[in-house]
Structure formats: structure tokens, C-alpha cells
């Protein structure tokens, strides 16, 4: 480490008149660089592998509706590990965290409204069959039309 510190100081004296008007000041001698310890990188990696195994494992069981939430929760924990450690967000400027987390709000807005609306008009939907004549379950258009009409009057 001492080796690198020496380099850092050399570089500082080389570069012109460094002023710290922008951003936070750092206590350590790396300037703005913040190398991750190797043990941390490795433990995050193994945690991710473990969670991948876990999600494959839980997929063996039929949990019904809970299944998608389980896998989403595990995926989110994994994503959190990647963002916080690999992407270094834990030590990053707060602004960058706000930027990326803020984007998730807009994703939620987009998906939320669109899905809420789709759920709302779902009952009005008429599904079309693309089963061709040679397939089982095929109905000719006249039968389909008659059924649709019957369904419409039934409502």
C-alpha cells in the first residue's frame, strides 16, 4: 500500500493546482480512488452464488403465487449486493445513489399505471385463437362468432 501512496502523491504534485471545489474530500491518500478489499469482493461473489443456488432450489417447489415473489425477493437481494458492493454505491456520492434509486421510482410508475390499467380493462378483452384448421380445438369462424354473440348477450 505504501507503494501506491507514493505514486498518488507524485501524481498530485504533477498535476496542476488541484483544488477541491467539487465533491467531498477524502481522508485517505488515494485521493478519490477507493480500492475494494479482496476479501469483500470474494465474499460478495460467494453470497451471490449461494443466492443463485437458493433461487434454483426454491423453484423446485410449487409455492403457487408466492413463488414469483420469492424469486423476486432473492433477485432483489442479489441485485442489491451487486449495486452496493460491485458497483461501489455504498461509498459513492449520494447523488449517484439518488439518481439510480430515483429511476426505480419512475419504473414503478410506468409499470404500476400500465398494469393497473391493463387489469382494469381485462374483462373487456376478447382473445383471438390462432389455432389452425388442422389443430385440435379448431373452430370455424362461424362457430366462434356465434359463441361470441352468445357470450355478449349473456352479459
Amino acid at each position: 500500500m505504501a507503494h501506491t501512496n507514493a505514486h498518488a502523491e507524485n501524481a498530485h504534485t504533477d498535476s496542476h493546482d488541484v483544488h477541491h471545489g467539487h465533491g467531498s474530500s477524502h481522508g485517505d491518500h488515494h485521493g478519490f480512488s477507493h480500492p475494494m478489499p479482496i476479501w469483500m469482493l470474494l465474499s460478495v461473489f460467494f453470497a451471490l452464488l449461494f443466492l443463485t443456488g437458493l433461487t434454483v432450489f426454491q423453484a423446485q417447489f410449487d409455492l403457487g403465487n408466492a413463488e414469483i415473489w420469492m424469486s423476486l425477493i432473492i433477485a432483489t437481494i442479489k441485485a442489491g449486493l451487486v449495486i452496493l458492493f460491485f458497483m461501489h454505491l455504498l461509498w459513492d456520492k449520494p447523488l449517484n445513489a439518488i439518481v439510480i434509486l430515483g429511476s426505480l421510482i419512475f419504473v414503478a410508475l410506468f409499470l404500476g399505471f400500465t398494469l393497473m390499467d391493463a387489469e382494469g380493462y381485462r374483462e373487456k378483452l376478447i382473445f383471438k385463437s390462432t389455432i389452425t384448421e388442422s389443430q385440435p380445438g379448431y373452430k370455424d369462424p362461424a362457430t366462434l362468432a356465434a359463441e361470441e354473440a352468445a357470450a355478449a348477450t349473456g352479459k
Binding site: 433461487t55 424469486s71 433477485a75 441485485a79 449495486i83
Partner: peptide, 16 residues
């Protein structure tokens, strides 16, 4: 890119 795949994998491959 990894992050996206972390979601794609269970959502596409692991539906039971």
C-alpha cells in the same frame, strides 16, 4: 448487464 440477468434468470427459466 449482470443486474438485468439476475432478474431475467428466475423470471424466464424458473417458473413452476
Amino acid at each position: 448487464v449482470d443486474f438485468i440477468w439476475i432478474y431475467l434468470f428466475p423470471l424466464l427459466y424458473l417458473i413452476t
